[in-house]
Computed example of a mutant assay.
Amino acid sequence: MTVITHNRRRSRLSTLVDQPGGVSVGVALTQARANLAGLEARSREIIAEQVAALAALPAPAAADERALDQAYAHASAVIDAASPFALDDLCAAAANLCDLIDAAPEDRPFDWRVVTVHAQALRLLLTLPPEAADARAQVLDSLKDVLKAKVPGAAESDAQP
């Protein structure tokens, strides 16, 4: 019986990984936070632009899938821009609108007032100071009430952990 053995060569990456060096996790997190802090102002601009575009969408005359897709895209863009900066209230309000659009029945026209209310709520959340936690919670609770009223079964899913 013949046994063939290969001399395994170590890859360059494996030798780099095995060597000590680099930065500690704490230093890397501090650097990442500093890099993100420089982008927060631009993120808020993007959020404001998306909210303005959402508010400017005209109410469709009939069931218009394209208008709902545009509203969904603007709400998703708010989530994308707000989530890296822990702007959880903005994310929750935009996600609430996405949930309402997802649950919209195809056989009936969408109540466009929902989009208008969410755009106004997002504007309000953008202008509230960070210490206004009670006002933020009240806005989000009101938006959740809209979801419960418009989507059957939303109250039960909200109660589950």
Rank of each mutant, 00 (worst) to 15 (best):
Glu65Ala: 06
Gly38Pro: 05
Leu54Gly: 06
Glu156Gly: 06
Leu13Arg: 13
Gly153Phe: 10
Ser24Phe: 09
Pro161Thr: 06
Ala28Asp: 02
Ile79Cys: 15
Ile47Arg: 03
Pro130Leu: 06
Val115Gln: 03
Ser14Thr: 04
Ala132Tyr: 08
Asn35Ala: 10
Asp89Val: 11
Pro20Tyr: 01
Leu54Ser: 07
Gly21Pro: 07
Asp64Gln: 08
Ala81Pro: 01
Ala154Arg: 00
Phe110Gly: 14
Ala32Pro: 06
Asp102Pro: 08
Ala37Tyr: 01
Ala73Thr: 13
Asp64Glu: 14
Pro161His: 05
His74Ile: 09
Ala133Met: 06
Cys91Leu: 06
Val3Pro: 01
Met1Gly: 01
Cys98Ile: 02
Ala59Glu: 15
Pro109Leu: 11
Ala81Leu: 06
Phe110Gln: 04
Ala77Asn: 11
Leu68Thr: 13
Glu156Lys: 02
Leu87Trp: 08
Arg136Asn: 01
Gln138Trp: 01
Val23Asn: 07
Pro105Tyr: 02
Ala67Thr: 10
Ala132Ile: 12
Asp111Gly: 01
Phe110Glu: 13
Asp134His: 09
Ser157Asp: 05
Leu57Ala: 01
Cys91Ala: 12
Val23Phe: 11
Leu140Thr: 11
Val25His: 09
Ala63Lys: 15
Ser76Gln: 15
Ala119Pro: 10
Leu125Ser: 10
Leu125Ala: 04
Arg123Gln: 08
Leu122Cys: 13
Thr30Glu: 14
Val17Leu: 15
Ala132Asn: 01
Ala103Leu: 02
Ala86Asn: 12
Ala119Tyr: 08
Thr116Met: 07
Ala48Leu: 11
Pro129Ser: 14
His74Gly: 14
Phe85Gly: 04
Leu16Arg: 15
Ala52Gln: 09
Asp80Thr: 10
Asp111Met: 05
Val115His: 11
Ser83Lys: 03
Thr116Arg: 10
Arg44Ile: 00
Leu13Asp: 10
Val23Gln: 03
Gln50Pro: 00
Pro58Val: 05
Ser76Gly: 13
Gly38Gln: 13
Ala133Arg: 05
Thr30Tyr: 13
Gly153Met: 03
Ile46Lys: 03
Asp111Cys: 05
Thr15Pro: 00
Gln120Cys: 02
Asp69Leu: 08
Leu39Val: 01
Met1Lys: 00
Ile46Leu: 09
Ser83Glu: 12
Leu36Glu: 05
Ala155Thr: 07
Ser14Asn: 10
Val27Leu: 10
Thr116His: 07
Arg108Leu: 15
Leu54His: 04
Asp64Tyr: 11
Arg10Cys: 12
Val25Arg: 13
Lys150Gly: 00
Ala32Thr: 14
Pro130His: 07
Gly22Ala: 07
Ile79His: 11
Glu131Ala: 05
Pro20Ser: 02
Arg9Cys: 03
Leu57Asn: 09
Ser83Val: 00
Leu100His: 09
Ala82Met: 09
Thr116Ser: 14
Arg8Val: 14
Gly21Trp: 02
Gln31Leu: 12
Asp80Leu: 11
Asp18Thr: 09
Ala61Phe: 06
Thr2Asn: 04
Val115Asn: 04
Ser157His: 00
Ala94Asn: 12
Ile4Cys: 05
Leu97Asp: 07
Ala154Cys: 05
Ala63Glu: 07
Arg42Lys: 07
Val17Phe: 15
Ala95Gln: 14
Asn96Ser: 13
Gln138Pro: 06
Gln31Lys: 14
Ser24Gly: 12
Ser14Met: 13
Ala59Ser: 13
Pro20Gln: 00
Lys150Val: 15
Arg9Leu: 12
Gly22Leu: 03
Glu65Trp: 08
Arg10Tyr: 05
Ala132Ser: 12
Leu100Phe: 02
Arg42Phe: 00
Ser11Leu: 11
